[in-house]
Design a protein around this nucleic acid. Sequence first.
RNA 1: GCCGAACAUUUUG
Length: 237
Amino acid sequence: QAFHSERRYDRTLSLFQEMIDRKLRIPPHAYNLVICGLCNEEKVNEAHRLLDDMLNKGYIPNLAIYTALIDAFFKVNNKEQALVLLKQVEDKGYRLDKVTCSTVINGLCKVGEVEKAKEFLGQSRETGLDVNAFSYCSIIDGLGKAGKIKEAEEVFEEMLERGCVRNAHCFNAFIDGLCKAAEMDTAMAVLRDMEKEGCEPTVYTYTILIDGLFKSHKSEEALKLWDEMIDRGITPT
RNA sequence: GCCGAACAUUUUG
């Protein structure tokens, strides 16, 4: 547990191996920790095998484990397996929660299936699931990276209509889309909206904008923003 | 309640 909390997954794993070697009985929670560790190291297939082990022993994996695996499959670009697991989870009668929902949405966006992600968001909302800022943020980010600024803006506005508070992640994702589309004036305007809405810009916000300004050959403005950032006590990473 | 999810710069040297 301690190794896991410190993200020392290699140590978690070797202890786990030791338990197996000594033929100790492995409690479900040990599986949870090791599966998460393997997922974080992109050893998805090993993680998936351990999930099967659990099932064979009659243990019931919780939703968090399935979510970690779905996320990991998306991160190694294996959309098919991710969706197979999602279907299994649904078939087993688990009630999806907001974390699983946003994991699926983020995964779909990252593999370039933003439209499917939007569909999933719509379905989730209809089934009464909380769709939170995480989910919207992934979609805004995905649309922005695909150059679909207009659509990104629509989703960004939709958040307000649906009463979902827009945090810095959402603003940053939207501003990033604008910068990548070289719409620097709008991007700067959104920065000011952000402040008006009471949302504090972060290092990410400034990095995104400064990078965009330089790439649009607006060095003076970029340097001005840099100073503004420093004045606010925000340190570049 | 806990565990599981989102944004930038760089990324073989």
